[in-house]
Design a protein around this nucleic acid. Structure first.
Lengths: 120, 120
DNA sequence: GTCTTGCAGTTACTGATGGGAAGCAGGTAT
DNA sequence: ATACCTGCTTCCCATCAGTAACTGCAAGAC
């Protein structure tokens, strides 16, 4: 990954943007911001995510210290995921961007339609 | 793309995050925030980007109304790209996230190292 | 002339990866 | 004994990010 490497080299911020750029990370983070949740419960509440993507996403978030993974000592051992302080603060930092997106999405969609009709 | 579709359906904010998640978009936006710039000049200043990726990125940004593309009437017709007000405001909204990333990147890297030694 | 250089891209290919389907191991309920 | 819960993992394929190489044009350089 030469170019990607160059980008990372130039900007460590990319690590974070990579995480944010991942669709599921943000959704999982938003869900756990409400309350801790188990694996399959998350899979049910987040519409359209596959077990694989949920597992991958959670492992990434865990690795980055944004969520915790706790195995509960229940009869079928359950696994509870919870957001950390760091995850909560990231979710907060995302707020500005989400607000921006909400405010501008109509304009952006209009721009896209205009652009597409110009080209198409 | 069923899951991606579901995600988009659930959250139009994804459109924006997809753009932000793209490494080059942010770099190009940051560069144009300083001053308008021509195609090859951008290619030279943004280390590691290929002509193709630059073209693709600029077309996306143009489509979203974040930059403008102006063909100058010079002998070899040059193309000048400039950031728009919308692009500038996105760049501003990114500020919070970039700050967050800068403040937490050391902690995150520490977490990752810990995680990787635990697993590996 | 013709050769190189710069302009702004496009085309052709390829290696990585995102993501769905299906399976696995272990338990409980019926 | 079968069927369903738990939390994942493995397999495989389509997509796509990205590189290398090419296009067409005009202005010098030699």
């Amino acid at each position: 990954m030469p170019a990607r490497h160059a980008a990372r080299h130039a900007c460590p911020i990319r690590d974070v943007l990579d995480r944010v750029g991942d669709a599921w990370s943000v959704l999982v983070l938003a869900e756990l911001e409400k309350e801790p949740c188990r694996f399959n419960a998350l899979g049910r509440v987040i519409e359209g995510i596959s077990p694989r993507m949920l597992a991958v996403t959670l492992r990434h978030l865990d690795r980055d210290g944004l969520v915790t993974r706790k195995v509960l000592d229940t009869k079928p051992p359950q696994v509870e995921y919870a957001i950390t302080a760091r995850g909560r603060s990231l979710h907060g930092a995302l707020g500005g961007l989400v607000d921006w997106a909400a405010r501008h999405q109509d304009d952006i969609n209009a721009s896209r339609r205009r652009f597409d009709t110009m080209v198409g």
